[in-house]
Amino acid sequence: GIVMGLNLLEVVELQLPSFFSDYDPRAAAANLPSSGVQAYLAGLTFALAASPCSTPVLATLLGYVATSRDPIVGGSLLLTYTTGYVAPLLIAASFAGALQSLLSFRRYSTWINPISGAFLLGGGVYTLLDKLFPATSMVM
């Protein structure tokens, strides 16, 4: 979490592998027969493009869930991550017709990475400090 937060704050630069960076989905979509196949391939392309951004966060989350050994907490964390990951896509797809008005919010997009980085850095530092200095409970 700390390294990913520092990466989003542009303090540390991570070079993650990027597959199919020179792939043009429009050229491939022109030869496809159905719009269902085109939609599937567009989603697949998006997933491959977003993978370098989401994989470190998901790997950290999966590592934490695996060590917590609590299926309720682990499932809740994974459901929350998935909801947060998919919600912007569902909202954007729902309002595709109003895309021009949504483009006016681009001026706020410069704050997304620093805010996300600060949250990740804060969560990582908290987790690290909690592991180094665990809270002791007093029995009365």
Rank of each mutant, 00 (worst) to 15 (best):
I2K: 00
G5R: 01
L6K: 01
N7S: 15
L8W: 01
L8V: 01
L9T: 03
L9R: 02
L9N: 03
L9C: 02
E10K: 06
V11H: 06
V11D: 10
E13M: 08
E13N: 09
L14A: 08
L14G: 02
Q15A: 12
P17D: 13
P17Q: 06
S18Q: 14
F19G: 00
F19L: 15
S21W: 06
D22V: 09
D22T: 14
D22M: 02
D24I: 04
D24Q: 13
R26A: 09
A28E: 11
A29L: 04
A30D: 07
N31R: 04
N31H: 05
N31P: 00
P33E: 00
P33I: 00
S34G: 02
S35E: 13
G36Y: 03
G36D: 06
Q38E: 10
L41D: 01
A42Q: 02
A42M: 04
A42D: 04
G43W: 11
T45L: 00
F46Y: 11
A47R: 12
L48W: 10
L48P: 01
A50Y: 12
S51L: 15
C53W: 12
S54H: 06
S54Y: 15
T55L: 15
T55V: 15
T55P: 00
V57Q: 01
L58Q: 04
L58K: 02
A59V: 14
G63H: 07
G63F: 07
G63V: 05
Y64M: 03
V65S: 01
A66M: 08
T67V: 11
S68E: 09
I72F: 09
V73Q: 10
G74W: 02
S76H: 03
L77D: 02
L77W: 03
L79R: 09
Y81P: 02
T82F: 11
T83N: 06
G84Q: 13
G84R: 13
Y85W: 15
Y85T: 11
V86F: 14
A87V: 13
A87N: 07
P88Y: 10
A92G: 11
S94Y: 13
S94R: 14
S94E: 03
F95V: 14
A96C: 05
A96G: 07
G97I: 05
A98D: 14
L99M: 10
L99H: 12
Q100V: 10
Q100Y: 07
Q100A: 15
Q100T: 14
S101E: 15
S101P: 03
S101Q: 15
L102G: 08
L103G: 11
L103D: 12
F105P: 11
R107P: 00
Y108P: 05
Y108C: 06
Y108N: 09
T110H: 08
T110F: 09
T110R: 12
W111F: 13
W111S: 07
I112Q: 10
I115V: 13
S116H: 11
S116K: 05
G117K: 08
G117R: 05
F119W: 14
F119Q: 07
F119V: 15
G122N: 04
G123P: 01
V125H: 01
V125C: 10
V125G: 03
T127E: 06
T127L: 13
L129C: 10
D130Q: 09
K131H: 12
L132C: 07
F133A: 08
F133Y: 14
F133C: 07
P134H: 04
T136Y: 06
T136D: 12
S137A: 09
M140S: 09
M140V: 12
